[in-house]
Design a protein around this nucleic acid. Structure first.
Length: 360
DNA sequence: TCTGGGGTCCTAGGACCC
DNA sequence: TCTGGGGTCCTAGGACCC
């Protein structure tokens, strides 16, 4: 099918996805606070991936250290992240959506855009919810929009298990007085920079001088934010299978690493893991990146283009070790990651890409 | 409380070439 | 003597998303 503009865009978002999958296979957990994160051990350094609504009522949220979550919800069931199970459930959901004859653009494990060209998008959204529930036992919320930006933002108003319509017609009524950080693609840094220009709300962003935004954020991001204030964006739903542009591995040590020998051994291990992943992809690596997190909490990155694309573990390892040697020594390594970037796949005009495309 | 792990894309500035 | 201007490539780092 490939990319095509849709009359309506539905944004389908599974509710408390990881926790919901766990409850499905352990029905006795229904109604209890359930927390999924790390290896399921709250004494380890790890964070919450998903909390069930019952756990959220106790103040537990994603990104929170597991240790703290366990204190807030002492009776919660804490489970390890089970990638294979969520991947399988996700594929079942996406196949169900495709089975409805709709164009599906997968955004992550628990999210997708769906194109709809009929007259009744609300009915289509209900069909999606019923089909997903019947096939998988999972509930989802559906945002309905006249483009992807509005559909995505609409979903937040439909949770849990509901629907919401956000179009050019009600954009300012719904979003006008809200802070810019509620826009998809505006985070804490950008909202703070906007505030320095006297822009606090979505309506003010829409009224802002485009040239000022371009001067502040550059030609692409400036123009993107200007459009975002109006809720403008693409309505093209693209079901082209996703191809990773890079592969990386990152790990958190339960105990800080202090000696160069420990760091080197850890790098060997991570590079071997990334190498296995890139071998599975069958594409050579053309640049490597190294991210090192130091105590207390700052990150250094180094990247280098390789002399030639390679699939050799020895080449990758020596490249990473060279980057590591380039970083200052004598610091405690708190978290450590290796990122191996791979050759860009053919096609995909950068001008056509939506700037914000975080994927899992 | 003490901050995961997986990604994507954009920008600035320096190097280098003509 | 003084120092063009445009283009491309590369690296580092920032920001965001799920």
């Amino acid at each position: 099918m490939s990319p095509r503009a849709a009359r309506h865009v539905l944004h389908v978002d599974l509710d408390q996805f990881l926790a919901a999958v766990e409850v499905l296979r352990r029905p006795e957990l229904a109604g209890r606070p359930v927390i999924v994160g790390g290896r399921g051990d709250p004494t380890e350094r790890a964070v919450v991936s998903t909390a069930s609504y019952e756990a959220r009522e106790l103040g537990v949220g994603s990104g929170m250290p597991l240790r703290l979550a366990a204190r807030k919800a002492p009776d919660a069931v804490i489970l390890p992240v089970d990638h294979a199970a969520y991947t399988e459930a996700s594929e079942h959901v996406m196949d169900t959506l495709r089975g409805l004859g709709m164009v599906v653009e997968v955004l992550g494990w628990d999210e997708a855009f769906v194109g709809h060209d009929g007259d009744d998008p609300r009915a289509a959204a209900r069909r999606v919810q019923e089909a997903v529930l019947e096939a998988t036992g999972l509930h989802c919320s559906v945002g309905i929009g006249d483009n992807k930006v509005r559909a995505k933002i609409a979903t937040g108003f439909g949770k849990p298990a509901g629907t919401f319509v956000l179009t050019a017609e009600n954009w300012f009524e719904v979003m006008g007085e809200r802070p810019t950080i509620e826009l998809w693609g505006v985070g804490s840094k950008v909202s703070a920079r906007l505030r320095r220009h006297g822009i606090d709300t979505v309506r003010q962003l829409a009224a802002a001088d485009r040239d000022v935004l371009v001067a502040e954020f550059g030609p692409r991001m400036g123009a993107w934010y200007a459009d975002l204030g109006h809720g403008r964006g693409s309505a093209v739903v693209d079901d082209t299978p996703w191809v990773a542009r890079g592969r990386g591995r990152e790990t958190t040590f339960q105990r800080n690493l202090v000696s160069p020998q420990e760091v080197e051994a850890a790098l060997h291990e991570l590079v071997a893991q990334v190498h296995a992943d890139t071998e599975a992809e069958g594409r050579p690596v053309f640049r490597v990146a190294l991210k090192v997190r130091y105590a207390p909490f700052f990150t250094r990155t180094r990247s280098r283009k390789l002399p030639a694309p390679t699939r050799s573990l020895a080449d990758l390892t020596s490249a990473i070790l060279a980057l590591a040697a380039d970083l200052e020594s004598g610091r405690e390594v708190r978290l450590l990651g290796v990122r191996a970037e791979m050759v860009m796949p053919d096609g995909g005009d950068p001008q056509e890409r939506t700037p914000v495309r975080g994927r899992i």
